[in-house]
Design a protein around this nucleic acid. Structure first.
Ligand code: MN
Ligand code: MN
Ligand code: MN
Ligand code: MN
Lengths: 153, 153
DNA sequence: TTGGATATATAGCCTTTGCTATGTTATTGT
DNA sequence: ACAATAACATAGCAAAGGCTATATATCCAA
C-alpha cells in the first residue's frame, strides 16, 4: 500500500487525508447519477408550463438526443414515480415530480443568476449553469443566493 | 413535433430557444466525459508531488473505487498519451499529462478558494468543488478568480 | 373516413464506468 | 535466497446512457 517512511516529521503536503478526498469523489459521482433525472423533470415542467404539452420529440430536441434515448429515460422516470405517461399526449409530472422540478429549477436559476451577478455573460452563464447546478449543495446554494441578493441591492 | 398555433402573439415563456438550450446540454455532456481524465491526472500529479509515487492502490483508495477500475482507466490514460506506466513503480505523467494536471489543479483550486471566499465552509467547498470544477468555462473561471482576489484584498 | 404525417415503441448495438473473483508477478524482510 | 506480501493483470458481469433502423400506433386534414 505504499507505507514507506513512518517517522516523517510532518512534511508539507498539498494532499488532504485519503478518506476526506474519497468522500468528495464519491459525492461527485453520486451527484452525476441524479443529473439526468433533474434535467428531465425540470425540462418537462418548463414544457408543460409553456405549452401545456411535454412530448418525447420536444424533449429530445431540447436535450439534443435521439427520441429512443428519451423513451428509455421516460421509462425510468415512470418507474421512479416522477412522471406519468398518456399515450400520444405526452408526459405529466406526479406530485413528487413536480416537487423535484421545483427544487431543481430554483437551484438552476439561482446558479445562473449568480454567475451573471459576478460578470459572466448570459450565454456563458447559461452554458455553465447547466452543469454546475447538479454539484451545488444546499449550503453553497444559500451562499450564492445571499450573494446575488446583495449585488442586486 | 407540436406545432399547435402559429399566430401566438409573443407569449411570455420561461423557455429559451430549443437550439440554445440544446447547446448547453451538449456542453454539459461533453464536460462530463472529461471529468474522470481530469481528476485522474490531477490526483496523479498530487501523489507524485507528495510522495514521489502514484500507485494504482493509492489512486483507488483516494478515488474510492476498486483497483481494477483504476487499472482500466490507466490504460485509457496511456492510450490518450497522458501517462506512462513503469511496472511495479507506479505511473508518471507525460508532458501533456503534466500540462493537463496543471490546468486542472489550478482551476480546481480557484473554484474551491472562491467558494470559501463567499462564506462556504471548507468542507463543503472541497466537496462541491470536486464536481463543479469540470463545468467551469474559462470565462467563468476568470470571473471567479477576480472575485476571490477582490475579497482577499 | 381514410391516408399520410407524426409520435411512439422496440430491437439490437456500442461505450463508459463501475464491480467481484481470481491469477500472476515483483519486492522485500528475514 | 526465498517465501510472504503487496501490487498488478485479467476475465466476466452489470447498469447507465447513447445511437440507428425499423415497426406500429394515433391524429388530423382533406
Ligand atoms: Mn437544470
Ligand atoms: Mn443541468
Ligand atoms: Mn479536481
Ligand atoms: Mn473533480
Amino acid at each position: 500500500m505504499n507505507e514507506k517512511n513512518s517517522q516523517t516529521i510532518e512534511v508539507e503536503s498539498s494532499l488532504v487525508a485519503p478518506d476526506t478526498q474519497m468522500e468528495s469523489f464519491k459525492q461527485a459521482r453520486h451527484n452525476r447519477r441524479s443529473e439526468l433525472v433533474e434535467d428531465y423533470v425540470e425540462l418537462i415542467a418548463d414544457l408543460l408550463a409553456d405549452g401545456g404539452e411535454a412530448r418525447q420529440v420536444d424533449i429530445a430536441q431540447r436535450l439534443g438526443v435521439a427520441q429512443p434515448t428519451v423513451a428509455k429515460m421516460l421509462k425510468r422516470l415512470i418507474a421512479e414515480g416522477y412522471i406519468q405517461q398518456r399515450p400520444y399526449r405526452g408526459v405529466f409530472l406526479t406530485s413528487i415530480g413536480k416537487e423535484l422540478a421545483r427544487v431543481s429549477r430554483e437551484r438552476h436559476q439561482i446558479v445562473e443568476a449568480f454567475l451573471c451577478s459576478i460578470g459572466v455573460s448570459v450565454e456563458t452563464a447559461r452554458m455553465d449553469a447547466e452543469g454546475i447546478e447538479h454539484h451545488v449543495s444546499p449550503e453553497t446554494l444559500e451562499a450564492l443566493k445571499k450573494f446575488t441578493a446583495t449585488v442586486r441591492a
